[in-house]
C-alpha cells in the first residue's frame, strides 16, 4: 500500500464514488463532479486518480454487464473499500476538529 494521504481531488473523487453508490463508473463520476463543483473535469485526470486510488487500496473495481451503448464495451464500476471509508472518516474528523477550533465571528466576516 502506498502512502495513505489523500489529495484534495482524490478526496472529491472518493466521496463521489461513495455518493453514486452502484452507479460509480468513470464517466458518471466525471459528470457528477462537474455538476457539484461546477468546474471542468478532464476524463484523463479522473482516470488516473481512480487508478491511483485503486493502487492505494481505497477503491476496488469490477466490470459490469455489456450494453449496446459504448460500442459494446463494458463499464468498470468502482466501490469504496473499508480502508477508503476509514480514510474518509479520518479526513472528515480532522476537518471537523479544525472547524471546531474556529471562533464563529471569524467566519462571519467573509
Amino acid at each position: 500500500m502506498k502512502g495513505t494521504n489523500l489529495g484534495e481531488f482524490e478526496e472529491v473523487v472518493l466521496l463521489t464514488i461513495a455518493s453514486l453508490m452502484s452507479e460509480a463508473y468513470s464517466v458518471a463520476i466525471c459528470d457528477e463532479i462537474e455538476r457539484i463543483t461546477e468546474r471542468q473535469v478532464k476524463l484523463g485526470v479522473v482516470h488516473s486518480v481512480l487508478n491511483r486510488l485503486e493502487e492505494k487500496g481505497f477503491v476496488t473495481s469490477q466490470l459490469g454487464e455489456a450494453t449496446k451503448a459504448r460500442g459494446g464495451r463494458r463499464k468498470r464500476f468502482f466501490e469504496v473499500t473499508h480502508a477508503g471509508k476509514a480514510t474518509l472518516q479520518k479526513v472528515k474528523a480532522q476537518r471537523d476538529e479544525l472547524w471546531s477550533l474556529i471562533p464563529e465571528f471569524n467566519l462571519k466576516m467573509i
Binding site: 463508473y25 468513470s26 464517466v27 476524463l43 482516470h47 487508478n51 466490470l63 451503448a69 459504448r70 460500442g71 464495451r73 463494458r74 463499464k75 468498470r76
Partner: peptide, 15 residues
C-alpha cells in the same frame, strides 16, 4: 486490463 473500460469511456464521450 484497462483497455475495455477505457475504450468504452472514450466511446461514450465520443457519442
Amino acid at each position: 486490463e484497462i483497455l475495455e473500460d477505457l475504450q468504452g469511456d472514450l466511446y461514450e464521450h465520443f457519442e
